[in-house]
Amino acid sequence: MARRIPRTAQILADLRSPAPDAVVSDLPGSLVTMCAASVPVTGAGIIVMSDAGPGAMLASTDGAAQIMEELQFTLGEGPCVDASTSGRPVLQPDLARTAAQRWPGFTAGALAAGVRAIFAFPLQVGGIRVGVLDLYRDVTGVLNDLELAEALAFADAATSILLQLQSETDGVTGDPGLVAMIEDRAEVHQATGMVSVQAGLALAPSLVLLRAHSYAAERPILDVAREVIGRTLRFDPEDDHHE
């Protein structure tokens, strides 16, 4: 079977191509615009997590996203709040029919703003939770299989961007390259856990560290992960992250 470029990697490349020198912090805005054009929704927003739960809106396509964020922030309820606290996507294809009991205040406000369906995807890698991607539209209806796959690919791309942004704040050195951070290999996640103990870091910067090492060494991240698990490579705190 021919190996396709994974959709998430393609999205990240497309985001970078119009302005290769753009800073990473500009990318969330481009991503929500591209996402709203690729998935049949009216608009999209990215909310970043704070320690207390859903925090500020990082990027959004238009006014309705702002209204929904304010509603959820003020009322402390809504799909985005649930997605971030439970780690589960919250897919509401018909707000008027299914959401009124679950979030009475939010639903009334969202319907008044013309929103009929909401799909909230937690941006997470296991125990790493960086935010939520909110998609909404002015008509009801479920996302079909292809639309859901596309939305999930955008969520994965958003997770990669947020991880990189966050690692800059955390002071993790080294450019991991803007690549898909979502790995389907168990050993990469095990190594992330081991590195977090060695380096005394949270899981998110630990994953970025592994990525940066793989990028700088021009080696697959799986090979790097196996060396960590085999205890031939360590990431100790505050050195150059090599043995």
Partner: peptide, 9 residues
């Protein structure tokens, strides 16, 4: 998987 890594280390 992440927790296995933390505990293993």
């Amino acid at each position: 998987e992440q927790a296995k890594g933390v505990l293993a280390e």
